[in-house]
Amino acid sequence: MAATDQLIEGLTRNLQPVKPLRKPGLRAALWSGFATLVIAIIAAVGGSRADLAHALPEVTFFVPLIGSWLTGVTAAVAAFQVSLPDRSRHWLWLPAVPILLWGTGFAVSCFSNPGDILASLALLPESACLLTIVLTSAALLVVLLPMLRRVKTLRPRLTAWLGCLAVAGFADTAHLLVHTEQDSLLALTVNLAPALALVVLGGLAGRKAI
C-alpha cells in the first residue's frame, strides 16, 4: 500500500494539463470530410469516368458507390467510438448494412458477367485501378493513424481493424468514380482484394500500429 501511495505521489508531482479528446462523432466527421475531399481531388485530377452522369442512376453502380462511402463513414465512427474505453464494443456492428450494400451491390453485377477469375487475378498487380486504391489508402491512413494512436486505446486490434475498413471503403469509392470497368471479375477482384487485404492487415498489425 505504501508503494501505491508513492505511485500516486509520483503521478501527481509534476502533473501536466491535458486536453480532452474531441467527441468521437466529431473526430469521425472531420476525418470522413477529409476523406471525401481526397476522393473529390482524385476524381478531379485523375479524371472521373466519362459516363458518370449516365452510370449514376444505374442501381448496379449507385448501390456499391453509396455502400462503399457509407462503409467508410460508419467504420470511421465505429473506430473512434470503440477506441475509447467506456464505449460499447457493439459499435462494431454499425458498418454491417453498408458493407452488405457495398459487397453485394456490385458482386451481383460482376457475377452476371463472370469472365475468368484466374485471368483477373493475374492482371491485378498491373492494374491502374489498384494504383488508385493504394494511393488513396495511403493518403487516408497517413491522417487516420495519428488520430487513432493519440487515443492510446485499450482495444488496439478492433480499432485498427475498423480504421482499415473505413480506409478501404473510401478508397473503393474513389476507384468506382475514376475507373469504368466495373462489371467483370477483374473489377470485383480489384475492388475487394485490396479492401480485404487492408482489413486483415489492420486486424493482424493493430496491436503494434495503434
Binding site: T4, L7, I8, L11, V18, K19, P20, L21, K23, L84, P85, D86, V151, K152, L154
Partner: peptide
C-alpha cells in the same frame, strides 16, 4: 490501473460520468 488511468486521462470526456469510464479501464 492507476498508471493506465494516468496515461489515458485525456480520453475521459468531462461531460460524461466518470465511474463507467474508470470501471471500463
Amino acid at each position: 490501473v492507476l498508471l493506465t488511468v494516468h496515461s489515458i486521462r485525456h480520453t475521459y470526456d468531462p461531460t460524461r460520468p466518470f465511474a463507467p469510464w474508470l470501471t471500463a479501464v
